[in-house]
């Protein structure tokens, strides 16, 4: 294949990928809904859930002495403090829409926004 043709293909590839991703982002933005509950998963297992309507500050402790401070404020969840070296979860923007996650890779902690508590406990369904 000629070099010119290859460069043309490069451009087609880049345009297609960006077009698909941009469409995906647009759809996500159109269909995003406010969540009600933040659930905490450690190592893939759900360990706790907190309603977004109540301001709280909790320390999530993982097995290997890792600590992440989860804060819920004005209906949004974020991580205030983490003992991990990379601090990526601390820098993450506040989350409040269904499906949004904050991930702390070193501590295997995931904070995820859902519509309802998975146990369907009535006291936290808002």
């Amino acid at each position: 294949m000629s070099n010119k043709r290859k460069i043309k293909n490069d451009i087609i590839l880049a345009v297609i990928v960006i077009a698909i991703a941009a469409t995906g982002l647009l759809l996500l933005n159109i269909f995003k809904t406010e969540g009600a509950v933040a659930i905490v998963k450690i190592d893939g297992k759900e360990t706790a859930s907190y309603p977004l309507s109540v301001n709280t500050e909790v320390v999530i402790e993982t097995g290997d002495s890792g600590k992440n401070t989860l804060v819920i404020e004005d209906g949004k969840a974020f991580v205030k403090n983490a003992t991990c070296p990379d601090k990526i979860c601390e820098g993450h923007s506040k989350i409040s829409y269904v499906g949004e996650t904050i991930v702390c890779l070193p501590h295997k902690v995931v904070i995820e926004i859902v519509v309802y508590n998975s146990d369907n406990e009535l006291d936290v369904v808002i």
């Binding site: 990928v17 960006i18 698909i20 991703a21 941009a22 995906g24 982002l25 996500l28 998963k41 190592d43 893939g44 297992k45 499906g99 949004e100 996650t101 991930v103 295997k108 995931v110 995820e112």
Partner: peptide, 17 residues
């Protein structure tokens, strides 16, 4: 796979751009 949370896949949209 490690977190058993498919929602992490949403990041792939921004990351592919």
């Amino acid at each position: 796979f490690l977190f058993d949370t498919i929602q992490i896949g949403y990041y792939m949209i921004v990351l592919s751009i």
